[in-house]
């Protein structure tokens, strides 16, 4: 196995921890609510999944625990921003801070625990496809969840009534309300589902890709997920591509290191964030697609 294959395998596995939260953030943003707390929800998901895995011995049940932990923090963000009209960015940061504190306090007892992470599953014939097979189809469960989630979310958002309602809420909540629907409820559901997916993304880190828990282990991936949604101009396919690119940048770093390429580790650590920043500039310059209108009000016309 050469370095490029190693990088791509790690990129898909690590990228999944960004893909799933980004799709969650996409859902939330299309409904008009930006959630910087995605970082906190991932953190909660990572610890929740780890704790449940330690307790039950099953990483699959752990993932469910992570999803719930993420959703709980998402509910708080939804309540504050939608029902209490709090500033979205501040609320998101506070949710992150709260999660940082809670996972710091509760997580100390799990630092030395050992778990059996999600097993690698080979998809029969597909994993035998030369070169691509081992990269795409010899991965853990959540990677496949990521594969399924992308078309599923595209279908729901663009082909169903629920998706139409959600997107309309993100553009003009007033109109949705006049038409006899409850924009608040729709937004709250979108934010909570988004946070749930962030929790699953966190689980992919703690019980999947990395397989251990340490303090502040998401180290900004949740913020990257928010950035990915912006530079993907709210298009699910681009979100997926962007997130995997970030994953590849992450994994390139560790592969270069193990192969003894003499670049300082910390400069490499900065690479994924730089890639994201540059992508943001390039895409924004092209104009991209306009943001959902309700979101624009929250993101640009602040204070």
């Amino acid at each position: 196995m050469n370095g490029i294959e190693q990088t791509l395998i790690g990129g898909i596995a690590g990228g999944t921890a960004i893909v799933i939260p980004s799709l969650g953030e996409l859902t939330s943003e299309l409904a008009g609510i930006v959630n910087l707390g995605t970082e906190g929800c991932m953190l909660a998901g990572a610890l929740g999944a780890y704790a449940v895995t330690v307790a039950t011995g099953s990483a699959e049940i752990g993932v469910a625990g992570g999803a719930i932990a993420g959703a709980v923090f998402g509910l708080l963000h939804a309540y504050l921003t939608i029902y209490r009209k709090a500033d979205q960015l501040t609320s998101g940061l506070v949710v992150w801070f709260l999660a940082l504190g809670v996972t710091g306090v509760l997580g100390t007892s799990y630092v030395n625990d050992v778990i059996t992470p999600l097993p690698v599953i080979s998809i029969g014939g597909l994993s035998k496809v030369p070169w691509l097979g081992p990269i795409l189809f010899h991965q853990d469960l959540l990677v496949y969840v990521g594969y399924v989630l992308v078309p599923l979310i595209i279908f729901i958002l663009h082909r169903t009534r629920i998706g139409l309602l959600l997107r309309s809420t993100g553009e003009r909540p007033e109109v949705v309300s006049v038409a006899g629907n409850r924009p608040n409820l729709i937004q709250a559901t979108a934010v909570t589902i988004g946070a749930l997916l962030a929790g699953v993304g966190g689980a992919q880190l703690s019980v999947g890709y990395v397989g251990t828990w340490f303090d502040d282990m998401t180290s900004g991936y949740g913020f990257v997920a928010v950035a990915v949604v912006l530079f993907a101009s709210w298009k699910p396919l681009r979100v997926m591509v962007g997130a995997y690119i970030f994953g590849v940048a992450l994994s390139a770093e560790s592969v270069l290191q193990t192969n003894g390429i003499a670049i300082n580790q910390y400069l490499l650590d900065a690479l994924p964030y730089l890639v994201t920043l540059i992508a943001l500039v390039i895409v924004s310059r092209k104009g991209g697609r306009k943001a959902p209108e309700a979101l624009n009000r929250a993101l640009i016309d602040v204070t």
């Binding site: 910087l36 650590d269 900065a270 994201t276 943001l280």
Partner: peptide, 29 residues
């Protein structure tokens, strides 16, 4: 980035934090 391309400064300033931290670690190590 905000004035030239419209990239949300709330997100870019956040990402810049992580870059700064990595630069510092590089210098320290």
């Amino acid at each position: 980035m905000r004035t030239a391309t419209g990239a949300s400064e709330a997100v870019t300033t956040l990402l810049m934090n992580f870059v700064a931290n990595d630069i510092m670690l590089y210098l320290i190590y």
